[in-house]
Design a protein around this nucleic acid. Structure first.
Lengths: 182, 182
DNA sequence: ACATTAGCGGAGGGGTGCCTCCGGTACGCA
DNA sequence: TGCGTACCGGAGGCACCCCTCCGCTAATGT
């Protein structure tokens, strides 16, 4: 998957570029997709003009952040490949949840449409779907559920509000057990 | 449960009050809690000043709308009381979902804190929890789940994004089946 | 060391939203 | 019908955000 915005050549420019990306990641995590661009520039210690030069549209910035997140998620999938089917799947989902919990921008993006998002979604599916299919083949997952169903279920439950983490995990457990065969 | 803001006396004032409430309901449904107050006044065909006179804070307006919604939900609970336990529960939840689907403000409110919200939550629990406990007593629902768990699970799943209604219902079905005994 | 030029950053114009304030309107009562 | 007043509505001040433009700064390469 090709990065859409390529890092600038000059050292100072590269520094700014990276600072913006980091600031944007934080801001999107805190405030969702609607985070203020001026605030992001401020956090990055950079002029608003610099932000716009590197990322002409909000979409561009968001995509740049999003690519990173998806890549990390794909990496986790590879790391759990040798666990038993159901464990591998839930372990990956645990990571997915931890990950997504603080980054609701990612969830909001699940339904965006653009070249880039389709590519990212493809990457995520390539990473996670084999885990899902393996669990299904092992007879651990009901046959009428799809990977997409599961992802949406998990991100739905996760993005809701809970009294504490324990409740969230418990509820997520209930929901997942509804996905198991039987 | 006492209504916080009482309807004005004069006929024109009462008209405006009701128009504002209706406009606010729509606006909150469309845009969530963040809906623009000026837009609400505009929809109601009323000056912004009138809005502020009736509802000094956004919270006041929101609460006034919220009270209505909760009352309607409570009414539905009474209507399903004579179905078999599990059916009664899921029927109520179906209504809850339909209801909440177009009114995300209500979901956002699940975690708010204020005199009024506590009261509303109490009302909703009084309405729905008996259905839940009945299903549990009938051995249809796992013992380690609470009504609160269920509500949050359902509203989480529901508030997520889905390809179509069919997927949403399917996924909701999976999640609910995870709540069943076994 | 210095010229070139990529890159910087913030002022500023336009838009929207929040909330207050007060001159004017029209409702309800006699 | 006419009066007093409850109520109206929007202008206006402030804050924030988006995005563009351009004079200035400093990284780079020779």
């Amino acid at each position: 998957m090709a990065i859409a915005v390529r890092r600038p050549q000059r050292a100072d420019a590269r520094r700014n570029f990276d600072a913006l990306l980091a600031a944007a990641r934080d801001a999107f995590a805190e405030n969702g997709t609607e985070a203020s661009l001026e605030d992001i520039a401020r956090r990055a210690g950079v002029g608003i003009g610099t932000l716009y030069r590197n990322f002409p549209t909000r979409q561009d910035l968001f995509e740049a952040v999003y690519v990173d997140e998806v890549d990390q998620l794909a990496a986790v999938a590879a790391a759990v490949a040798d666990l038993p089917p159901w464990e591998a799947l839930t372990t990956w989902l645990d990571r997915f949840v931890d990950y997504v919990g603080t980054k609701r921008a990612l969830v909001e993006a699940l339904n965006r449409d653009s070249e880039m998002f389709r590519a990212c979604r493809a990457t995520m599916y390539e990473a996670g779907e084999p885990l899902f299919e393996r669990a299904k083949d092992a007879g651990e997952v009901r046959a009428d559920a799809s990977f997409d169903d599961m992802l949406r279920m998990v991100s739905g439950v996760t993005s809701g509000a809970f009294v504490d983490t324990a409740q969230r995990d418990r509820v997520l457990g209930f929901a997942l057990s509804g996905l198991k065969k039987g």
